[in-house]
């Protein structure tokens, strides 16, 4: 049941992309354990605003774990300590009274900090622009039922397609690699017959763009899958490796 806890927050503040950032200490007192993590920051922000200080900037939107907007590193872990949970769905009952929480932005060279806890993840969009689609134009699709997809393939594709593009995998990876994100999109599209036609070109273009964006490479640390709020498995990375090796481009 609900109770109140007091916390100390050590939060990364950075004015903009070019400014130097630093940690600042804040008190979060009488936090209701039923609050979500973002609601806890809301409370701190209301207080800061009233004191005339600039509130902490953080990305969020749906607050139900699907838009992929939220995400910060709490005590070294992207999206905080609870597995398979986005920051917006993490609740304060997972923390103890008196705890100090260190909150930082997702860090990677390809994700420059925009302000405080907000980072620029547009690199993900550009990787998708390179090939994360099926080249079908509106209007030229045949009847949906003419194409059968085995249940197994449909489920494998769906498992991978659940990725919300939050970037936690990159932030968790000691190499700042985007393998889980890119692998998830490749698995989604490459296992389906609709996407198979362009498979070779897709894997090449996306990997090339991924490298160009400055993401690291994979040394199979598997931190990414542990941090992924959608439980995307590193099997998508293996599949990407295989497709890349076999592709004719």
């Amino acid at each position: 049941m609900s109770k109140k806890i007091n916390l100390t927050l050590k939060i990364w503040r950075q004015k903009n992309r070019h400014a130097k950032g630093r940690f600042e200490l804040y008190k979060a007192d009488a936090i209701d354990t039923e609050m979500s993590f973002l609601e806890m920051i809301d409370v701190v922000n209301e207080k800061l605003t009233k004191e005339g200080q600039e509130p902490i900037a953080f990305d969020h939107d749906c607050r139900e774990g699907i838009c992929g907007m939220c995400g910060a590193v709490v005590n070294g872990q992207p999206h905080g300590p609870q597995r398979a949970t986005t920051l917006c769905q993490l609740h304060m009952r997972y923390f103890k009274d008196g705890e100090t929480l260190v909150i930082e932005p997702l860090r990677a060279r390809a994700f420059p900090v925009v302000k405080d806890l907000i980072v620029d993840r547009s690199a993900f969009d550009r990787v998708l622009q390179a090939g994360g689609f099926v080249s079908v134009k509106t209007g030229c699709a045949p009847d949906a039922q003419t194409l059968l997809v085995s249940k197994h393939k449909a489920e494998t594709a769906m498992d991978a397609a659940q990725c919300i593009g939050c970037g936690a995998c990159v932030a968790a990876c000691p190499n700042g690699a985007a393998m889980l994100f890119v692998g998830a999109k490749l698995t989604h599209l490459n296992v389906l017959p609709q996407g198979e036609v362009e498979k070779d070109a897709r894997v090449h273009r996306m990997v090339k763009q991924m490298d160009k964006e400055g993401f690291g490479s994979c040394s199979n640390e598997y931190e990414c899958q542990a941090a992924c709020p959608k439980k995307i498995s590193v099997s998508v990375i293996a599949r990407m490796n295989k497709d890349h090796l076999r592709s004719s481009e």
Binding site: G76, P78, P174
Partner: peptide
């Protein structure tokens, strides 16, 4: 790197 070094667990 992060101020707190606490890998998520698989490493």
């Amino acid at each position: 790197r992060y101020a707190v070094d606490r890998p998520v667990g698989e490493r």
